[in-house]
Design a protein around this nucleic acid. Structure first.
Lengths: 186, 186
DNA sequence: TGTACATCAGTGAACGCGCGTTCACTGATGTAC
DNA sequence: TGTACATCAGTGAACGCGCGTTCACTGATGTAC
C-alpha cells in the first residue's frame, strides 16, 4: 500500500511533524513548529491539510499503517493461537522501537480530541486479532483478555522507549503473564 | 489525613475542577470554566493557586489520595502475595468507579506536562507494592510484571468507566492473567 | 465604646501571547490556438 | 513558435480568539489603643 500522501511537500510536512512530535510531544507540535521544520511557509500547510485535525489524522495513520504492515508480515498465514499472538506482539514492540514519534503518539494520542476516535479503531483492530488467539488458547472472556493484553503491550512499548532499547525483562514478564513463555526466545 | 486544602473556596475550586474535568476532559478544563462552575471571580483562582500547574497538581493529589486511602484500608496488614494483590486491585477498581473525574485523570494526566511527574510517582507507588506481591508469588522479573499489571488494572478501570459499571468479564480476565482466579469471588 | 489601621479573600477588567486559520498575491508549469 | 489564459503549489502578513495571568481596587474582619 502506497503512503496516503504522495506530494513531496505533504511528505515533508508529515516527516517534520513526526520529528517535532518526537522532540516536543503532540501538544507542543504546533503548526508553526511543523512548517519551520519542514522549511515551508505557514500557508503551505493549509494547501495540503484542511486543518490541524486532518493533519493529526494523517500522522496517526502513517504511524499505524507502518506498524500494521510490520505485524502483518510477521504473522502472515499463522492460525490464531500462541505463536500468532506472541510474534505479533514482538513485531509491535520491534516496530515501536524502530519508528520515530511513537512515544508522543502512544502517550498523547488518546487525549487529543482530533484522533481519539482513530486511536480507538486502531486499538480495536489489534484487539480483534488478539481476541481470536485467546479464544484459540481456550481463554474465557477472550475479548476482555485481548483488551488487557493490548494495553500491556503498549505499556511494554513505552517502557522500551523510555530505556531506548529492547527490554528483555519486560518482554519476559509479558510472555509469562499470558503464558507464552514455554516456547524458545524468538 | 485531612484534605490538603482547607479553605472553603479552595475546596469549591477543586470540586468544580473535578466536575469540569469529568464533563469536558482535562484539556478543556480552563480556568474560566472552573471559576464559572465554582461561582467565583477569575482573580479568586489566583488567590488560592499560584498557577494552573499548581492547581492541576492539587487536583491529582486529591484524586490519588482518596484512591490510596481506599486501597490501604482494603489491604491493611495483608502480607505481600495473592490476596494483597487482588484485594488492592479490586479496591482500585471500585475506587475508580466511585470517584468522579477519574476518566480525565486516568486518560489525560500522563500527557499534561504539569502533572506528568506526579503521575509517574503515583504509578511507581502502586507498582512498588505490586512488585512485592509478585516476588512473593515467585515471579521472575517482578518489577516489570508489576508495571504491566498496573497498566492492565488502569485499562480495566477505563473499560469499567466506559460501561459506567463494574465489568465482571474484565475483572475475571485480569485475575486469570495474573493467576489470582483460583480464589472465590470477593 | 469608638476610632484608626492592618490583613486578606475576593473582584473583574485588561493584558499579552500563542496558535490556528485566512486571504490576496506570486510564480511556475501546462494547455489552447 | 509565440501569445493568452488556466491551474495550482507556495507565500507570509494579518486576524481573531481562547486562555492564563496580572493588578489596582473593594469590603469584611480582626487588632491596638
Amino acid at each position: 500500500m502506497p503512503p496516503a500522501t504522495t506530494h513531496p511537500t505533504s511528505e515533508a510536512l508529515v516527516a517534520a511533524g513526526i520529528d517535532v512530535a518526537e522532540e516536543l510531544g503532540l501538544s507542543r507540535m504546533t503548526i508553526d513548529a511543523v512548517v519551520e521544520r519542514a522549511g515551508v511557509a505557514k500557508g503551505t500547510f493549509y494547501v495540503h491539510f484542511r486543518d490541524r485535525a486532518a493533519y493529526l489524522l494523517a500522522l496517526h495513520r502513517r504511524f499505524h499503517d507502518e506498524l500494521r504492515i510490520g505485524i502483518a508480515a510477521a504473522i502472515d498465514g499463522l492460525p490464531p493461537g500462541a505463536s500468532r499472538l506472541r510474534l505479533g506482539a514482538e513485531a509491535y514492540l520491534d516496530g515501536c522501537l524502530a519508528a520515530r514519534g511513537v512515544k508522543a503518539l502512544l502517550l498523547e494520542a488518546r487525549s487529543e480530541r482530533a484522533i481519539r476516535e482513530e486511536v480507538r479503531r486502531s486499538d480495536a483492530r489489534f484487539s480483534a486479532d488478539a481476541e481470536g488467539c485467546f479464544e484459540a488458547l481456550g481463554y474465557g472472556d477472550a475479548s476482555a483478555s485481548a483488551r488487557l493484553f493490548v494495553a500491556m503491550t503498549a505499556e511494554a512499548a513505552l517502557a522500551e522507549l523510555e530505556s531506548g532499547k529492547r527490554r528483555d525483562d519486560v518482554r519476559r514478564a509479558l510472555w509469562r503473564l499470558v503464558r507464552l513463555n514455554e516456547e524458545e526466545e524468538v
